[in-house]
């Protein structure tokens, strides 16, 4: 055997060819940058800052990814971690860890400390399909947790890193209490690691949709929860949005940098405009239908990409299956009184 103890090296060609995976370039995966995309994102970032109140040099991942108020909101709730570690070339700060019952989002800011680091980031974003570092997440027993690590170049040269994990049958809330070890293994940041505890720290609300389906909302996601995988998959997702309380919509629009006039104009054109804004956040470009962040949507700078939410139905134990959709904005649950599924209003 070529590779000792690798019994799969003995597999027949027919089985290898039969199982050939779909090529990745066909998939609508999470945020992967091209050079052009990075440039566009930089412009978008500048626009957001012009409208915001914080200087560009000092913002962290929460402001980049959400809005200029996010840090203040998260700080007031005691959710900013602000733990910094430094390698020879980078300073990385774990800004916040947001967790509800089903997902956890860790947000970090990596600051290049020299020209070598800056060139490294540029080269990775240009040539490495948007991937910059190698990140590994493990539970308290050292078992690897499936996570997505996503990279966004800020216009000031910093790099925003968002690591998203979903709880499932194996990595459940009790395992979460033992913490997640996030380790960087890339040479530029090798040895840097953060231990964080994705214990639920976000409020949530639920609303029953049918006998076997419940919708779950937190500031960072909408989850469809059901007693069977088939039922959850069937409900899927129909560009949901919210029943806003008075003033709620205006506060939301402010957070995503859209004026009321622009909102009204867009809603006349497309009844799903608002729900896309919830899912895709402030980087969504309605004209080009491209976005950065949100519910598993890639950033496609060229051409029209029909944006569709992506999610997986997972068994989380206790007879529950869950399908998760991330928000591209930080939603204040005090501003909403229910969800709108498709066009159906479902109050809490």
């Amino acid at each position: 055997m070529k590779n000792e103890r690798d019994i799969m090296a003995l597999l027949d060609d027919s089985y290898i060819l039969e199982a050939e995976p779909v090529q990745r370039k066909q998939r609508k995966r999470k945020h992967r940058f091209s050079v052009a995309a990075a440039a566009v994102a930089a412009c978008l970032g500048m626009t957001a800052i012009t409208a915001g109140a914080v200087t560009i040099m000092n913002r962290n991942s929460t402001e980049f990814f959400y809005d200029s108020q996010a840090e203040e909101i998260l700080e007031s709730k005691g959710l900013m971690v602000s733990e910094t570690q430094t390698s020879k070339h980078f300073e990385i700060t774990l800004d916040t860890v947001l967790a509800d019952d089903y997902v956890c989002r860790a947000m970090l800011t990596a600051r290049p400390l020299d020209d070598t680091a800056k060139s490294f980031v540029e080269a990775c974003l240009a040539n490495n399909n948007g991937r910059v570092f190698d990140v590994c997440t493990k539970d308290g027993d050292g078992n690897r947790i499936l996570s997505s690590d996503l990279y966004y170049p800020d216009s000031n040269g910093d790099l925003v890193i968002v690591v998203e994990s979903a709880f499932d049958y194996f990595f459940n809330q009790s395992k979460a209490s033992e913490g997640i070890e996030l380790t960087f293994t890339s040479p530029m940041v090798s040895g840097l690691s953060f231990k964080y505890y994705p214990k639920k720290n976000l409020e949530s609300k639920t609303v029953k949709y049918s006998d076997d389906i419940t919708f779950y909302v937190s500031p960072i996601e909408l989850a469809t929860v059901g007693t069977s995988e088939e039922a959850v998959d069937k409900v899927g997702f129909r560009w949901s949005t919210f029943m806003w309380k008075e003033g709620g919509l205006d506060r939301f629009l402010e957070s995503v940098g859209i004026s009321r006039e622009e909102y009204d104009k867009q809603m006349k054109r497309n009844k799903w405009f608002e729900s896309r804004l919830v899912m895709l956040g402030k980087y969504w470009n309605a004209e080009k239908n491209t976005s950065l962040g949100g519910s598993g949507i890639g950033f496609y700078p060229e051409g029209h990409m029909e944006l569709m939410p992506e999610g997986y139905t997972d068994f989380v134990g206790e007879g529950r299956f869950v399908r998760v959709f991330w928000f591209g904005a930080l939603i204040d649950l005090d501003d909403i009184e229910g969800i709108i599924y498709g066009l159906e209003e479902i109050p809490f």
Binding site: P21, L146, Y312, T313, F321
Partner: peptide
């Protein structure tokens, strides 16, 4: 990755 297989097979990761 498990997630990639799940996506391409159209089933959940747990499955």
């Amino acid at each position: 990755e498990i997630a990639e297989i799940a996506e391409q097979c159209g089933i959940g990761k747990s499955k």
